[in-house]
């Protein structure tokens, strides 16, 4: 029911027709309309990209304002830029910003690695292997996508504290893995279904075992989707809040979003300071993302299957 595969013959027929169509189309296009198109395409994408990156720029220059200046003009550039907010955050021991970053980094790395690993295995099995319970397992994981986390707070709290799993350094990895798996599984499932079966069949003829085929043939092929899963999950693990609030009490193991709540008072919020803290705590993954964006994108588009 959920994701049926129906590619195969029909696709191959379509593929054969493309080259001719493309060349014909190119000849018809005059260079003028090409230029107009180019302007439009680049314009739309450029505009959208700018709106996407503007929040970062805005967060940054706003964090250089003081509360008063921010509140009187939330969009304008700071007239007297200051690092005051950053200094106050880094020098206040109550904020424990550094330890929270270490905790978040550890949780994120562990969770993402496990999500990719298990998501790949389960996704592949569900996509390719027919066995009793395949459909049932798929539906079960689908359930995980639609559960509003807030509503399970009490049962999950009781479960973890009775099982003695609250307040441990590895506590958060468990729910992050569980709630990260469904998306990963469905992405892998959808991806694998588009990969021709012949590869595995050829491997099988060569006498490759299931495990070897899985990790040495299919996994490299799946790099694009695995990298994508990695990116998506990195940020959602880093930003996750509900479980962190629910399951961690000890300050020494708190993650970044939880430490962030120390910046908001009951009746007053110092927005520029919150922004400074936000940027500071996001900085590791932002830097990671931008520095490695080339490699990430390469990974995302690298696995093109030939034939």
């Amino acid at each position: 029911m959920i994701m049926s595969s129906s590619n195969g013959i029909e696709d191959t027929i379509v593929l054969d027709r493309i080259p001719e169509a493309g060349i014909r189309g190119e000849k018809i296009l005059s260079s003028l309309s090409r230029r107009v198109q180019s302007v439009i395409l680049n314009g739309i994408l450029g505009l959208f990209s700018i709106t996407c990156i503007f929040p970062l720029v805005w967060l940054f220059y706003s964090s250089l304002k003081l509360k008063r200046n921010f509140n009187s003009n939330i969009i304008g550039l700071p007239k007297e830029p200051t690092f005051e907010n950053y200094i106050r955050i880094m020098t206040n021991p109550d904020y424990h910003i550094w330890s929270s970053m270490v905790n978040s980094a550890r949780n994120t790395v562990m969770s993402v690695a496990l999500i990719i690993f298990f998501g790949f295995i389960v996704g592949y099995i569900l996509a390719r292997i027919r066995f009793r319970g395949n459909f049932l397992i798929k539906v079960m994981f689908l359930l995980g996508l639609v559960i509003p986390v807030y509503s399970l707070m009490v049962p999950i709290y009781v479960l973890f504290s009775r099982a003695g799993l609250s307040n441990k350094w590895f506590t958060l990895v468990i729910p992050y893995l569980a709630f990260g798996l469904p998306i990963a599984i469905f992405l892998v499932d959808g991806y694998i279904r588009a990969v021709p079966k012949e590869l595995e069949e050829a491997a099988a003829i060569d006498g490759s075992s299931f495990t070897r085929t899985l990790f040495q043939i299919i996994m490299p092929l799946s790099t694009p989707i695995l990298v994508t899963i990695g990116i998506i999950q990195t940020f959602s693990c880093w930003n996750e809040f509900v479980f962190a609030l629910l399951l961690l009490k000890r300050q020494s193991i708190q993650t970044v979003p939880l430490a962030m709540t120390q910046f908001t008072g009951q009746f007053s919020s110092d927005y520029p300071k919150i922004m400074a803290a936000l940027l500071l705590t996001m900085s590791p993954i932002i830097v990671f993302y931008f520095v490695f964006s080339r490699q990430i994108i390469k990974g995302m588009v690298s696995g093109a299957v030939k034939g």
């Binding site: 707070m153 009490v154 709290y157 009781v158 504290s161 609030l245 629910l246 009490k249 709540t261 120390q262 908001t264 008072g265 009951q266």
Partner: peptide, 21 residues
């Protein structure tokens, strides 16, 4: 001491009350 911002405090204390903890 477990110190949470007011909103989070109210949320957490409701969970703890319901869980009798």
């Amino acid at each position: 001491q477990t110190i949470l911002a007011n909103d989070e405090y109210k949320k957490q204390i409701a969970v703890l009350a319901a869980a009798n903890d």
